[in-house]
Amino acid sequence: MATPPVPVVAPTPGTPTPSTPDPTTAPARPAPRWLVTLPLMLGGGALIALQSQVNGALTGRLGTGLRASALAALVSFGSGLLVLSLLALLHRPTGRGVAALGGAVRRRRIPLWLVLGGLGGAFFVASQGLAAPTLGITFFILCFVAGQAVMALVVDQRGWGPNGVTALTRSRVAGAVLAVLAVAVSGAGLLSAVPVTGSLLVLAALPLLAGAVNSAQQGVNGRLAAHVGPWVTTWNNFWVGTLGLVLFLAVALLRPGHLTGLPTEPWLYLGGLCGIGFIWASTVTVRVHGVLVVGVFSVAGQVVTAALIGLLTGPGRPGPTTWAAVAVSLAGAAVVGLAQRRRHAG
Rank of each mutant, 00 (worst) to 15 (best):
P5Q: 05
T15E: 13
T15G: 08
T25V: 11
A28R: 10
P30H: 11
P30E: 07
A31P: 15
W34R: 14
T37A: 02
M41Q: 13
L47P: 00
L50H: 09
S52Q: 15
Q53P: 10
G56T: 14
L58R: 04
G60I: 01
R61P: 10
L62V: 06
R67M: 14
S69N: 10
L71H: 07
S76Y: 00
G78P: 04
L101S: 04
V105K: 13
V105Q: 10
R106N: 06
L112C: 08
G117A: 04
G121I: 13
V125D: 07
A126F: 05
S127V: 08
L130M: 08
I141G: 13
C143E: 12
F144I: 05
V145P: 13
Q148I: 05
M151C: 12
L153G: 05
W160K: 01
T166A: 10
L168T: 14
V177W: 01
V180M: 14
V180F: 15
V180P: 12
A182Y: 03
A184C: 08
S186I: 10
L190K: 15
S192P: 12
S192C: 10
A193V: 04
P195V: 00
V213L: 03
V220M: 09
V220T: 07
N221G: 09
R223I: 00
R223W: 03
N237H: 06
V240C: 00
G241A: 07
T242F: 01
T242D: 00
T242A: 01
L245S: 09
L249W: 11
A250E: 14
A252N: 06
L253D: 02
G257Y: 07
H258P: 01
T264V: 15
E265I: 02
W267E: 07
G272D: 02
G275C: 08
F278W: 04
A281Q: 05
L292W: 01
G295L: 09
Q302D: 11
V303W: 10
V304E: 11
A306R: 03
A307I: 00
A307Y: 01
L308W: 02
L308S: 02
G310P: 15
L311F: 09
R317L: 13
G319K: 14
P320H: 09
W323F: 12
L330E: 09
L338N: 12
R341P: 07
